[in-house]
Amino acid sequence: MSQAVIGENSQVIFHFSIKLEDGSAADSTKVHNKPAKLTMGDGSLTANFEKCLLGLNAGESKTFELEPEDAFGQPNPDNIYYVDRSKFGPETPAKVGAIIAFTQPDGTELPGLVREVQGESVTIDFNHPLAGQRLTFEVDIIEVQG
């Protein structure tokens, strides 16, 4: 039986690890042993990320670097908000470096990073924490369908 190769519409189950330019680990599905699952072409990954997966078989591993535009994008200044300090309470204090989930008008939660606290103004950054960074991805392909 021939092994499935990742193509344009394949369903892929894989582990990935993300490393920063300094070599430190940013994220890994191996920590909780929960591999990622995706359907190629569904828009959840950038085109260049998908290109790096095309042609891999189950059992193969690959390491590749992606520029910010091909990973999590560049930080968007429109995703920086200034919130009044009175909106924070004892259970969610406004501390630099804290990640706080904010409920959106549609009921979904969006994590924001407290960047700065000045007087009564708190700067919240809703950009992905890895936006603007060149990243190294290590992928281990577990299963390929289609």
Rank of each mutant, 00 (worst) to 15 (best):
M1H: 11
M1T: 12
M1N: 08
Q3A: 10
I6W: 00
E8L: 04
S10T: 13
S10G: 03
V12T: 06
V12Y: 01
V12P: 01
I13N: 01
F14R: 06
F16P: 00
F16R: 04
I18F: 03
L20S: 05
E21K: 12
E21A: 14
D22W: 10
G23D: 07
S24A: 06
A25P: 03
A26H: 10
S28C: 14
T29M: 07
T29Q: 10
K30Q: 13
K30I: 11
V31C: 02
P35S: 05
A36I: 01
G41R: 08
D42C: 02
D42L: 00
G43P: 10
G43V: 12
S44E: 13
N48D: 15
E50G: 00
E50P: 04
K51E: 15
C52H: 15
L54W: 13
G55R: 15
L56W: 11
N57M: 07
N57L: 07
S61H: 11
K62Y: 01
K62E: 00
K62A: 15
K62M: 07
T63G: 11
E65L: 02
E67N: 05
E69V: 13
F72R: 09
F72E: 01
N76E: 09
D78K: 15
N79S: 13
N79I: 00
N79P: 01
N79K: 15
I80T: 05
I80E: 12
I80H: 02
Y81T: 10
V83S: 01
V83E: 05
V83C: 08
D84W: 09
D84L: 10
D84M: 09
S86G: 05
K87G: 01
F88S: 00
P90A: 13
E91I: 06
K95A: 04
V96K: 04
G97A: 05
A98E: 14
I99E: 14
I99H: 09
I100E: 03
F102S: 03
F102C: 03
F102Y: 12
T103H: 04
Q104T: 09
Q104A: 13
D106P: 06
G107M: 08
T108L: 12
L110I: 06
G112R: 04
G112D: 01
E116A: 09
Q118L: 08
G119C: 02
V122Y: 00
V122F: 04
V122I: 08
I124V: 15
I124M: 13
D125Q: 08
L130Y: 15
Q133N: 06
Q133K: 14
R134D: 04
R134E: 05
F137K: 02
F137D: 01
E138Q: 14
E138K: 12
D140C: 09
D140M: 13
E143R: 08
V144H: 00
Q145H: 10
